[in-house]
Amino acid sequence: MTRRIIHIDESPIRFERWHRRLPNWLKRFLPSGGGSYEDHHGKGMFGFTVFLLSESLIFLSFIFTYVALRLTHSRDWLPPGVSGPELSNFVIINTVVLLSSSFVIQPAENALRSGKLNKFRWLWLMTIAMGTYFLIGQIIEWSKLDFKLSTGLVGSTFYVLTGFHGLHVLTGVILQIIMLVRSFIRGNYNKGHFGASTTTLFWHFVDIVWVFLFSLLYLWRA
C-alpha cells in the first residue's frame, strides 16, 4: 500500500482564510497549503499560471513601447501614402471568431472533466478550426496591407505585435491538436486532464491579449 505523503505549508503568511473566499474557478490556479505529493494537477496548474504571468510581462513591454512611440511620434506616425491598419469587416469577423473560441474551448474542457469524450472532441475540433481561421485571416490581412515590416514605426510595431501574438495562437492550435490526438488513446485521460486544462488556460490568455492589441492597433486612431 502506497503511503500518502503530505507537504506541510511552512510559509510564514497564511492565506487559507483569503483562499476560501475565492470563486471555485480561480482556486484551481492558486493552490493553498502544502498539498499532497500526488497533487500534480494543482501544482502544475499553478506553475503554468506563473508561466503565463511571465508571458504577459513580455506582451506588456511590447504594448507600453507601442503606446510610448505613438505618443512621441503622433505627427509622423504614418508615412506619406500609408493609411495604416484599417478596421474592416474582415478584421472584425476575424476578431469575433477568435474571441468566440474561448466560449467553445471552455465547455470542451468541462465535457472532458465530466467524462463526455465525444462532446470534448467535437468542441475541441471546433476550437482548432476557429484558431486556424484566425491565423489564415491574419495572413490574408498582412498580404493586403499597404505597408511592410520596414515601413517606419507603424510597420515594425504592427508586425511585431501581431506576429508575436500569431505565434502564440499557432502554439495554442498545435497544443489543441496534440490534446485531441491524445483523446483517442484509450485511457489517456483517466488519471487527469492537465494538458487540456493548461491548453484551455493558454487559449484564454491568447484571447485576452488580442483584446488589448485589437484596441491599440485598430481602434486608436490618430
Rank of each mutant, 00 (worst) to 15 (best):
S32A: 14
S61T: 12
E86M: 14
W18F: 12
L26G: 04
T49C: 10
S61R: 04
S32Q: 12
P23I: 00
F46N: 02
S56R: 01
L22Q: 07
S74H: 11
S11I: 03
S56G: 02
R75A: 15
T49M: 15
G42C: 09
S36Q: 14
S83E: 13
T49Q: 12
S61Y: 08
V50L: 12
R17H: 15
L53H: 08
E10I: 02
H19N: 09
T49P: 07
P80W: 05
P79C: 10
R70E: 06
F29D: 11
R20Q: 15
E38S: 10
I6E: 15
G84F: 10
E16V: 06
R14Q: 13
L78F: 14
F48G: 04
H41Y: 10
I63C: 05
E55S: 08
V50W: 05
S61E: 02
P79I: 13
W77C: 07
G47N: 04
E16S: 15
P79M: 12
L71T: 01
E86N: 10
H40W: 10
L26F: 14
P12W: 01
P31F: 13
T49D: 11
W18V: 04
T72I: 04
T2F: 11
L71F: 06
G84K: 08
F29G: 05
S54R: 00
P80N: 09
Y66H: 10
D76I: 10
R3M: 05
G84H: 08
F46M: 02
H41P: 02
L71W: 03
E86Q: 15
M45A: 11
K27A: 08
G44A: 06
E16T: 11
L26S: 08
L60P: 00
S11N: 12
I13E: 12
F46Q: 01
H73T: 03
G33W: 09
F62I: 03
R3G: 00
H41L: 14
I13P: 01
L30S: 09
E16L: 10
H73A: 07
S83C: 03
H73M: 05
W18A: 14
S74A: 15
M45C: 06
V67I: 15
H19R: 09
R75D: 15
F59D: 02
F15L: 12
H41D: 12
A68E: 07
D9A: 09
L26K: 06
H41S: 11
E38M: 03
G42L: 11
E86I: 13
E16F: 13
W25T: 07
L53E: 00
H7I: 06
L71G: 00
T72S: 15
S11R: 11
Y37F: 08
L22I: 00
I58T: 13
F62N: 00
P31V: 10
L71I: 01
R4E: 14
R70V: 02
E38K: 05
L71N: 02
F48Q: 06
L69K: 02
G44I: 01
E55V: 06
